[in-house]
Design a binder for these strands. Structure first.
Lengths: 110, 110
DNA sequence: TGTGCGTATGTCAGATCAGACATAGAATGG
DNA sequence: CCATTCTATGTCTGATCTGACATACGCACA
């Protein structure tokens, strides 16, 4: 469970030390990452629900396929600004976003 | 009501055209601004609840007074990343953030 | 009036993020 | 096996954000 989540974080480019357990992340960093993962996940589900490929979605967002892939991976090079703007462009409301935060966040809480 | 909200946005540096009514903002832009205003407001209330000045809070956040002022004004030079990280550093949880979004967002909805 | 304290605004150099492109990997169908 | 299609990763250049500093504003209260 923890190992799997750690893998997910590392794939997202968080470069958590090999020796250093990812619990080195401070509470606020963990929460921030939680939020990003929740938004990223919501974005992917929304795209799939719309039956779009990453490229199609990139067009719709005025972005590129590679950036969409990174958004969905919650890569550290994507900001929450980008995630939020993308969600909103796909029709999400602030309430939808709030729901993502409450239902998805803290999945890998220590 | 609308005029007041517009003033708030302009103070925040959104430079909405004089002629162009702020309704020119697209739906997703409005939602994004809503979210920023909600987070900014939550941050200010949290600071006041803690009885901190902007300078004291800046120290705690590792930032500067001017930046805190801009955060609270939801100035366009501050990202939601910064707002979220700041809220979390002050002890907020993702659920708290979600609450901010549902109770505060869409205040000036058309 | 002027002094002090808190807040707001303008600007800048360095840091981070954006979209784009190339390319690699994974999965499916022939 | 090879194509095709979709997704993932690395890297570049220009754009945006960050903390800091200076300075202005607002409001008390002597």
């Amino acid at each position: 469970m923890r190992a799997e989540k750690r893998r997910q974080l590392e794939r997202a480019g968080w470069a958590i030390g090999d020796a250093g357990d990812f619990l080195e992340l401070s509470a606020e960093e963990r929460r921030f990452v939680d939020v990003k993962l929740a938004l990223a996940d919501g974005l992917r589900r929304r795209r799939e629900r719309l039956g779009l490929t990453q490229s199609a979605m990139a067009d719709r967002l005025g972005s590129s396929q590679s950036r969409v892939a990174k958004m969905e991976a919650a890569h550290r090079s994507v900001s929450t600004d980008l995630l939020l703007k993308s969600l909103f462009r796909l029709g999400a409301s602030p309430a939808d976003v709030a729901r993502l935060l409450t239902t998805k966040a803290r999945t890998y809480a220590a």
